[in-house]
Design a protein around this nucleic acid. Sequence first.
DNA 1: ATATCACAGATCGTATACGATCGGTGATGG
DNA 2: CCATCACCGATCGTATACGATCTGTGATAT
Lengths: 225, 225
Amino acid sequence: MASETVVQSKTQLAYTWIKERISDGTYTPGYRLVLGQIAKALDVSVVPVREAIRLLESEGLVTFEHNVGAQVAMHDETEYLYTMQTLSLVEGAATALSAPHISAADIDRARTINEQMIECLQHFDPHRFTELNLEFHSVLFENCPNPHILDLVHRGWGRLTVLRDSTFSFVPGRARESVLEHEQILSLLEQGADSLAIELEARAHRTRTLDAFLDYQERRHHEVP
Amino acid sequence: MASETVVQSKTQLAYTWIKERISDGTYTPGYRLVLGQIAKALDVSVVPVREAIRLLESEGLVTFEHNVGAQVAMHDETEYLYTMQTLSLVEGAATALSAPHISAADIDRARTINEQMIECLQHFDPHRFTELNLEFHSVLFENCPNPHILDLVHRGWGRLTVLRDSTFSFVPGRARESVLEHEQILSLLEQGADSLAIELEARAHRTRTLDAFLDYQERRHHEVP
DNA sequence: ATATCACAGATCGTATACGATCGGTGATGG
DNA sequence: CCATCACCGATCGTATACGATCTGTGATAT
């Protein structure tokens, strides 16, 4: 009875399959998700596919219109703003709530990750940088004792995944600031800072990324009218 | 073309039907939601019922287990704590984000509601009190320009609805404090206070209710061992 | 040329059907 | 008498089927 064959439901199968295709860019924002197509591709019926799509809808990765169908969520600038704002809120809280449960070993691990991020900057590896960024923050918020808040954080990151590498590639120079701010957060955690201080710093870290993005967009817009 | 007959989907029908039964207490926490039963009661097939249940699951009103079925979510003390903590977070933020868009008329309206709440205290009408409490806070957060955060607030309140009248009935005396704190929040809004100040005050308002509840439980537990 | 309408193909929403899985009950053995 | 196992009914998960609805295209009228 060592390893039982885990029978995952077809719904689960469709869910992860679609999510993967959205994440890796096969299905770009706006792409129409046709039930019959996906069902045939996965060799399942439309029912579980439909269910999977509605799950993705509830996570905001997909939009759904009655009697029309589903498509990969469009992430315009406003949508990005909403997501980042929400994530700054819940991630800040999750980090603060995690703080009391974070060990010195965790902080070491985070610091190692942050150093790898610096290397990515030097070798210009935006994709790996983004991956490491998630790993870094995961160390900081995964100990959050409130599963609801933790779930919201995961959903927020899930949405961002649709705009892969956005942090890094869209606003040059921001990544460099980012790793410095990471160190700042770590030192707050090390010195056992006040919960609110940690929350606000973690929140500000993300807010600054958002602001940098908006500024950058604004500037680009002025340069090329 | 004045009023078209709005054809709501059977899924929508099942969704609201079940949600209502959960809210009004017909389906108490732990009640097993059997697909076939509900389908027959509504004279629809199991497919839309299933979809409705999964929607409710994603809102946390229902728990679902593969190959076993669904039941109305159990709200033990821990679950209540998680929900209140999350709601304090998102509601605080929503209130702060709404602040710049709140008019003097809105504040008047909120104050009127708060006065009605005081009357409820005198006539001991907990049910109406709870209703008004939602109305009061709605005035404060409904102008939130971030729809994601607003949605999270609605979901949080939705979860609380399962434990109706909890604030009022479970912890005596707290309701009286509550209306005073409402006035405090209103005055912050009137004087155009700092966004963070508003957020933290709105957050603390809810946190205090949670703390009062936990204290009260603790005390009851000691009295009756 | 533009607007309106009707039709056709594609796709969705839901009913029905059936095999798969779970939980409980009674028989069997210790 | 208690533990284990086999069976059965209840319920779930998913395939298939079909009517309902939407979107786009081409014909017609202004």
